[in-house]
Design a protein around this nucleic acid. Structure first.
Lengths: 335, 335
DNA sequence: CTGAAAGCGCTTACAG
DNA sequence: CTGAAAGCGCTTACAG
């Protein structure tokens, strides 16, 4: 394995001074066209490409954003990271991935490690709207721009955040069902301490108020984000309250609910409609296909990255900001 | 935002020479316990942590592995990357993620960018066993250790590779069905050019030979890795050949096949058994739950990382190696 | 328009 | 056991 050529070697080969090569590659000062072309050509021949880390040492810019995330979560963190990556690519930035350790202490170390690697900034991508306090504390100590994706900090003063509007998501899902003439809606969430569930149920309630439809508090039940949990909750609801529609706080719950309806001999959507949340791949695979609320992961990711870049470019023009982006209903066969 | 303290400042504050701090942090030479402790304490107070990039410049080791991948694929690349990340963490390495551009030229640039960032090595995580020739060529030109995950290069001379044994996976899936007394097995794959499908069907055939059961070539059909495709293929097979078991080359196909069986009024597994491939989350969500072949992603990821580290530590003791790891059958309700 | 020099934050032989 | 110096590959004022 040959070594990578350095700037010096290129300069020598091209017969120019050493910094000239730097100037050519950075367009950082006028260089005669002839020299520029000559340098570029020799660089190409030698297979030279500037060492980004050495440049980073000199400029204290690494063109790398650290992504700290707490879970390989296919329905939230991965789609957001994918969107960040795509945006980063177009700005010629790279991502360093760091999975957050389970222990609070580890989280601190992860952050330290990231800053020790000269990240220009760090985006923390949470898979849940419930932020771990240890992380908040650790983030506060970082000396570089920090941004939160999918969740917001308890104290808005420190960092930017970009997240989906769970309340509005719950609102439009419920409106969707009510506007189809459904009147006995059930809500199945995860546990009551889950912020996303809380916001989604808030939207559920608001839609009822808005359209002046009464709801039955007994039809709002909690469990966890899994199909079996949704199955059981739906089975009980069907037996006791005969809902004509179910709004599930999550697609896994929705699948479970669908299965329970079918097992109870109910036709979907004729006898009962179902709407999920996440708009995951599941929704198209299961039959009947499942109507679901889509969160704007692409926009969240892109906005996170763009805001980060802006902050890096205009370090002075900054005050913490929280952006909440709307969801949309994707209609399929269960409603 | 205060700046990060440097080694110099720590040295000053601790009243020791500048390199002494370095020696303490690297354990690279004997330092008196008193000095060591004193240095460590002041470092802690100041919040000092060594700059890994500056260290990288001096040592040409960045303790960072570049991960080049071609798709955020939830059933293959992401699980492998997750396993690599976990292993990397235990070795105090970090991962830089780079999604490979669609165009061959972009792939080259991605690789260059990774080497320009002083990655110690690069692991290419493919989501398919069909390797893009442009990538192979680009990899050949890299000047650092390269390793392929999930796929192997056409020319084994250049790089290491670690991949699952698709043939053995097909073999055990088929054995599993045959040993349950099934005798009219169908195989539904993706297209015939897909290497994974080809290997899996080879295992299907071998199992039949091994157990001296005849198979009907008309029951080996191709489509794509989606539920609708599996649905249609299964519907046709059921109408024309009445299989008593279906081995699907993919879980999505398996779900489609299951749906077709149910639509045709067949009981699963009584009338017909189904085995998928990937052991994805789907298998536990769908009812009946789906028996599937699990690929050893954890082992693949860990082995990739460990081999990479070994190569970095023992650069001389290396010849290219291909490792093929066995799959296992995870029994569920469809068989 | 171009060259010579200092510095980014580290490591590591070289002396003592 | 510890210090002073050179170097990793770049960038960027400072001169000319």
């Amino acid at each position: 394995m040959k070594n990578k050529p350095t700037m010096k070697e290129v300069a020598k080969a091209a017969g120019v001074s050493w910094p000239t090569v730097s100037y050519v590659f950075n367009n950082s000062r006028r260089v005669s066209d002839k020299t520029r072309e000559h340098v570029l050509n020799t660089a190409l021949e030698l297979g030279y490409t500037p060492d980004i880390m050495a440049r980073g040492l000199a400029t204290s810019r690494s063109y790398t954003i650290g992504i700290l995330f707490n879970e390989f979560n296919f329905s939230t963190s991965i789609p957001i990271i994918a969107a960040i990556e795509e945006a980063a690519r177009s700005y010629n930035y790279r991502l360093v991935l760091a999975l957050q350790g389970r222990e609070p202490k580890e989280a601190m170390l992860d952050l330290q490690d990231l800053t020790a690697r000269r990240m220009d900034g760090i985006i923390f991508v949470s898979s849940t709207d419930n932020l771990d306090p240890a992380i908040v504390e650790a983030l506060g100590a970082a000396r570089i721009p920090i941004l939160l994706a999918y969740t917001s900090p308890p104290n808005l003063a420190m960092v930017d955040s970009v997240l989906p509007d769970h309340v509005q998501g719950g609102l439009i899902a419920t409106r969707h069902l009510l506007s189809q003439g459904r009147r006995r809606l059930a809500f199945i969430g995860s546990d009551e301490n889950n912020n996303a569930t809380r916001k989604r149920v808030a939207g559920f309630l608001r839609a009822h108020e808005e359209m002046q439809v009464e709801y039955d508090p007994a039809m709002i039940v909690y469990g966890e984000y899994t199909a079996p949990s949704g199955r059981e909750a739906a089975r009980n609801l069907i037996a006791s309250h005969r809902p004509d529609a179910i709004f599930a706080a999550d697609d896994n719950i929705a699948v479970g609910a669908l299965q329970a309806c079918q097992a109870a001999g109910m036709k979907v959507p004729e006898d009962i409609a179902i709407v999920g949340f996440d708009n995951s791949a599941l929704c198209d695979i299961i039959l009947p296909t499942i109507t679901s609320v889509a969160m704007p992961f692409d926009k969240i990711g892109r906005l996170c990255l763009e805001r980060m870049i802006y902050r890096l470019q205009q370090p002075d023009d900054w005050k913490p900001e929280q952006t909440i982006l709307p969801c949309s209903v994707v209609s399929r066969e269960t409603s």
